[in-house]
């Protein structure tokens, strides 16, 4: 059973890995541009596994910012993971002992969380381990390639790759939004609020990471209030 679940996870990780390869590639180029060696760039990707946090962290590093600023920035940008981990914690099966939770928590990225949550029923350690494997390799490998050889690729191509990750997000949220009014409400509310926070001058001081938390909490609360979920779902 564990083997089949692991393999199923591996398969579900393929599109994430492809997306990561391209996004990490862009990060690698940026890191090399900031003066980091390919090895230094890869080490960041292997220990952090987070796109927005790494991009922000890189610029702070290059600028020589104080360590407390680095810690605060990561906290604000990545706090959304706490929300995702909390959501995921309610879906794990009995085989997820504390050590496994502590280990697999490392791989709880936006995309892995999205795919894992879209699975029916409880989530086991074999499936989640399989799901994390390839994206991790893609993330580290993409960073290495980007840092070492990014300048060789035409801008036209690297620009186009930037949209890959969002295509993946849309593939996760649109089908359920189409078939269920409750999910549609939540997605539209989150998207509209996020656009308002971005473009309305009054909110220009709100950082990207904090804006995501604000929008997600409001939209999910709206959904829970208007369309409470029954146990069977």
């Amino acid at each position: 059973m564990g083997k089949a679940a692991f393999r199923r996870g591996l398969g579900h990780g393929v599109p994430i890995a492809l997306g990561y390869l391209s996004v990490a590639f862009a990060f690698g180029i940026q890191a090399a541009g900031g003066g980091l060696t390919p090895l230094q760039a890869v080490l960041i990707s292997m220990t952090n596994l987070t796109s927005a946090g790494q991009v922000a962290g890189l610029s702070l590093m290059v600028a020589g910012a104080p360590l407390y600023e680095m810690a605060l920035t990561q906290l604000v940008i990545n706090l959304r993971y706490a929300l995702m981990s909390l959501s995921l914690s309610q879906r794990l099966d009995a085989g997820m002992t504390t050590p496994w939770r502590a280990l697999l928590a490392f791989g709880n990225t936006d995309e892995i969380f999205a795919v894992a949550s879209s699975q029916p029923g409880e989530i086991g350690r074999a499936y989640l381990t399989g799901l994390i494997c390839l994206p991790y390799v893609g993330w580290a490998g993409g960073t290495l390639l980007g840092a070492a050889a990014g300048a060789l690729l035409p801008v036209l191509l690297t620009d186009a790759l930037g949209i890959a990750i969002y295509g993946m997000f849309l593939a996760v949220i649109l089908p359920p939004a189409r078939s269920r009014r409750s999910v549609r409400l939540v997605v539209v509310a989150a998207a509209v609020m996020s656009c308002i926070l971005r473009y309305a001058p009054a909110f220009s001081s709100i950082s990207g990471g904090f804006s995501i938390i604000l929008c997600a909490v409001s939209a999910a609360a709206l959904g829970a209030w208007r369309f409470p979920v029954r146990e069977a779902e």
Binding site: R80, L83, M84, L86, S87, Q90, D110, F113, A114, S117, S118, Y166, F169, L170, V172, I173, P176, A177, S182, V183, V186, V187, V188, A189, A190, A191, V192, M193, S194, C195, R198, Y199, S211, I212, C215, A216, V217, S218, A219, A220, A221, G223, A224, F227, P228, V229, E233
Partner: peptide, 17 residues
């Protein structure tokens, strides 16, 4: 219910704009 909707809300906010 709130936690059930979190993935959709997070991804909606991250995708747009």
């Amino acid at each position: 219910s709130f936690l059930y909707y979190v993935p959709y809300a997070v991804l909606g906010a991250m995708t747009f704009p």
